[in-house]
Simulated scan of single mutants.
Amino acid sequence: MLEEATKTAATVTVREKHGGKCGGAPETTPRRFTMEIDLETGATQWDNNEEMEMKPVA
């Protein structure tokens, strides 16, 4: 899900997709992580870590 975008950066939130055969509640979409992408350099950060702080994607 694209959260925010400018000419130089985009913020994307990745969520679980529930429904069908997955067994999860179809009315929920829990957040997995958020990514920030620098559209000029391609540098990407995400908060998929214990501290939930933006860090470079390795």
Rank of each mutant, 00 (worst) to 15 (best):
E3F: 08
E3H: 05
E3T: 09
E3D: 13
E3I: 13
E4K: 12
E4W: 13
E4T: 09
A5S: 12
A5V: 14
T6F: 07
K7H: 11
K7Y: 06
T8F: 08
A10M: 10
A10H: 02
A10I: 01
V12A: 09
T13C: 05
V14G: 00
V14M: 09
R15M: 10
R15F: 10
K17P: 00
G19D: 02
K21W: 09
K21H: 07
K21P: 00
K21I: 04
C22K: 07
C22V: 04
C22H: 06
C22D: 15
G23W: 05
G23T: 03
G23K: 03
G24E: 00
A25S: 09
P26R: 01
P26N: 04
P26D: 03
E27A: 11
E27Y: 09
T28N: 10
T28I: 01
T29Y: 03
T29Q: 12
P30D: 02
P30M: 03
R32E: 13
R32N: 05
R32L: 15
F33R: 10
M35N: 05
M35R: 10
D38T: 02
D38L: 02
L39Q: 01
T41E: 02
G42Y: 05
A43M: 00
T44D: 07
Q45A: 08
W46F: 10
W46V: 03
W46N: 15
W46R: 09
D47I: 01
D47P: 07
N48A: 14
N48D: 15
N48I: 00
N49R: 03
N49G: 04
E50A: 15
E50P: 03
E51L: 07
E51S: 12
M52W: 07
M52I: 07
M52Y: 08
M52P: 01
M54G: 05
P56N: 07
V57Q: 10
V57W: 04
V57T: 08
V57E: 08
A58P: 14
A58Q: 11
A58W: 02
A58N: 09
A58C: 00
